[in-house]
Simulated assay, not measured.
Amino acid sequence: MLSTELFARLTAIWEEGEHHDAVTTERALKNLFITPDTGRFLYQLLRHANPQHVLEIGTSNGYSTLWLALALRDRSGRITSLDVLPAKQQQAARHLQDFALQHKVELHCQDAAAHLRAAADGSVDVVFLDADRSRYVDYWPDLCRILRRGGLIVVDNVLSHAAECADFIRLVLATEGYLAETYQIGKGQFVIVKD
């Protein structure tokens, strides 16, 4: 259960991150958190789906990772989270430790394309995609391959960065066997199910 105390801690991290981003001009140093309502949405999806393997592409400093891990804290499922910035992953590791969730998440400082190429067919139940949007089209063939039938992909920022996501969305919608819809939650969530 997400207690009032957990909500308060998550809210404090988000507010601190928003303040940090408002005064930080260099993009690589920004937190770029998901919104709290996106966190609640991801939590609901994972609590319902009870996935065994979640792949997060774009750890940043772990705010979204906390929501994912909290959803699985009393379940057997685990999360693999990828980012290319070591400093961000170190922050994520501290957040996970603060919430006693480090046992639920494997943090990898690795390029997502390399990880996707090496992943086994049908090995992932849920993907949360929140990274370099210019690479999503290239990721798509491997995302299709590694996602199990009935699995979900959730893509953040599809409304706030609509132009950057347009080619990927068109590609997904043109792919047979996938059903996708955009939801006006947070900065826009594009939810794809492998039918």
Rank of each mutant, 00 (worst) to 15 (best):
M1H: 13
R9V: 06
I13Y: 12
W14F: 15
W14V: 09
D21E: 09
A22W: 06
A22L: 10
V23Y: 08
T24K: 04
T24Q: 10
T25D: 12
T25I: 11
E26D: 14
R27S: 13
R27L: 15
A28N: 09
K30Y: 11
N31R: 15
F33C: 10
F33P: 11
D37K: 04
D37A: 06
T38M: 12
T38Q: 14
T38I: 03
L42W: 11
H48R: 12
H48L: 15
P51D: 10
Q52L: 13
Q52I: 07
H53Y: 08
G62H: 01
Y63G: 04
Y63E: 04
L66D: 05
A69G: 09
L72Q: 02
D74M: 03
R75M: 12
G77D: 10
G77Q: 08
R78Y: 02
I79G: 06
T80Y: 01
T80E: 07
S81Q: 02
L82H: 07
L82P: 09
L85T: 13
A87N: 10
A92S: 01
A93K: 00
R94W: 07
H95F: 01
L96C: 00
L96S: 00
Q97D: 14
A100V: 08
Q102A: 13
Q102F: 00
E106R: 03
A118W: 00
A119V: 00
G122L: 01
S123F: 03
V124F: 01
V126T: 02
V126H: 01
F128H: 00
F128T: 00
L129Q: 01
D130Y: 00
A131G: 03
A131R: 00
Y136D: 09
D138C: 03
Y139A: 02
W140A: 05
D142H: 12
D142N: 10
D142V: 01
L143D: 01
R145G: 07
G150R: 00
G150Y: 02
G151V: 01
I153W: 06
V155F: 04
V155Q: 03
D156L: 01
S160T: 13
H161T: 03
A162H: 12
A162Q: 14
A162S: 14
A163E: 15
C165T: 08
C165M: 10
A166I: 06
D167L: 12
F168T: 01
R170C: 10
E176S: 14
A180G: 07
T182M: 09
T182V: 14
Y183K: 11
Q184H: 13
Q184Y: 06
K187E: 14
G188C: 03
F190Y: 12
V191P: 08
I192F: 05
K194L: 05
K194V: 06
D195E: 14
